[in-house]
């Protein structure tokens, strides 16, 4: 797992660039994609509740499925079903966030040269990794941050014409609601 900041910055950039084409992706929906990019790292719950201690009860247990396609799919479906009414767009964006997470983690350096079982439970295959960075490296977050800044700047330029959108909404309300 790359550090969470890199994941979230990349998700932000992807979401904002998509919003240039898909206008329904407004700021709250950008956040939905960012949330999706954090979900596979819910495996970190292991820091709080040690799976090894659960296994002492005799039941085999591992949080690893959260960091696979199958487990992440279930996670974002549960979250979309329990938290929002507009299930379709939110689940799509959470799912896309999960995919950005996996894409970044497939590039991580690994001692065996093989990445994680991304497609489990379909297959336990661990694809070979090009080994570009470690989750403890500083530069991925710096690079992702620089890209996110450029995207943010471009986005604010693009919105320049409709910068006062909130004022427009207020005016509209004022006129129509009395």
């Amino acid at each position: 797992m790359a550090d969470l900041l890199t994941h979230v910055l990349v998700a932000y950039s992807v979401a904002v660039v998509l919003s240039w084409r898909l206008h329904w992706i407004t700021t709250p929906y950008v956040t939905a994609l960012m949330v999706g990019s954090t979900l596979p790292d819910l495996t970190r719950i292991g820091l709080l509740i040690d799976p090894g201690l659960i296994e002492r009860t005799g039941i085999p247990f591992s949080y690893s499925p959260l960091h696979t396609l199958g487990g992440a799919l279930i996670t974002f479906l549960i979250i979309s079903l329990t938290t929002v009414k507009n299930f379709k767009p939110v689940s799509m964006l959470l799912g896309l966030g999960v995919l950005t997470h996996f894409a970044l983690d497939l590039l991580l350096i690994n001692a065996s040269g093989h990445s994680f079982t991304v497609l489990w439970p379909l297959t336990a295959y661990r694809p070979p990794t090009p080994g570009l960075y470690l989750s403890t490296d500083l530069w991925p977050a710096l690079l992702a941050g620089a890209v996110a800044l450029v995207v943010w700047y471009t986005d604010s330029k693009r919105r320049f014409g409709s910068k006062n959108i909130y004022a427009c909404i207020d005016n509209y309300r004022h006129e129509h609601d009395g």
Binding site: I74, T75, W120
Partner: peptide, 9 residues
């Protein structure tokens, strides 16, 4: 999801 945790374990 819980079944996957146990299966993977």
């Amino acid at each position: 999801l819980i079944s996957l945790f146990v299966w993977h374990g």
